[in-house]
């Protein structure tokens, strides 16, 4: 526990008790503020410099080879506090040689931007690094339906991000040349 020190309050002088000098000081401050540089950004013409970890609209991203990263594990749907995410899981057809070993992919992936609170939990929880809150922040629409981003829109917004792991490719490599017996 911090020690409490009781300070003796100094009695106010007459001029202090009228508060007039203090008011004059205040007036000086506000007056000088008038000539300082303005902090306002002229928004539509000027855009703010976004920090690196800015959380904008959640998007889905492809890996550098243009392949879908999401495997529809639905962890984002689970963790989403306002229940904005809705996934219809589906499987990757066996004929898809490039992606067959991933087995699972979303059939439909919807994020309701009227519900989204930009908390970034979905990005944090994603085990595939497939969902990112990028720097798009001004999404708007005329109807409620427009504000629900479907899978195509989410991939359009997200585009392609670099991938450090290529997790599923490693798996495929192992299958091709690895310990198969």
């Amino acid at each position: 526990m911090a020690k409490t020190v009781v300070l003796e309050r100094k009695p106010l002088s007459l001029s202090e008790r009228t508060y007039l000098p203090q008011i004059v000081t205040g007036l000086k401050t506000t007056f000088s503020n008038m000539f300082k540089e303005k902090a306002t950004l002229q928004y539509p013409e000027e855009k703010p410099q976004l920090p690196q970890n800015y959380r904008g609209v959640p998007t889905l991203v492809n890996d550098p080879n243009g392949r879908e990263k999401c495997v529809s594990c639905q962890l984002c749907e689970f963790v989403c506090p306002p229940k904005a995410i809705r996934i219809t899981p589906g499987s990757v057809p066996e004929e898809d040689e490039d992606r067959e070993h991933v087995e699972k992919a979303p059939q439909e992936f919807e994020i309701n931007m009227l519900r989204c609170i930009y908390c970034g939990y979905c990005q944090e929880v994603c085990p595939e690094e497939a969902i990112f809150l990028l720097d798009e922040y001004s999404s708007s629409g005329y109807t409620r339906e427009e504000m629900i981003n479907n899978k195509a829109k989410l991939y359009e917004l997200g585009g392609t991000l670099p991938d450090k792991h290529y997790k599923w490719d490693k798996k495929k490599d192992a299958e091709v040349e690895g310990n198969a017996h």
Binding site: E94, H101, E103, A174, E175, G178, N179, A180, H181
Partner: peptide, 9 residues
């Protein structure tokens, strides 16, 4: 080491 690969699906 590399993990074993077994039949899937």
């Amino acid at each position: 080491e590399r993990k074993n690969v077994k039949p899937k699906r």
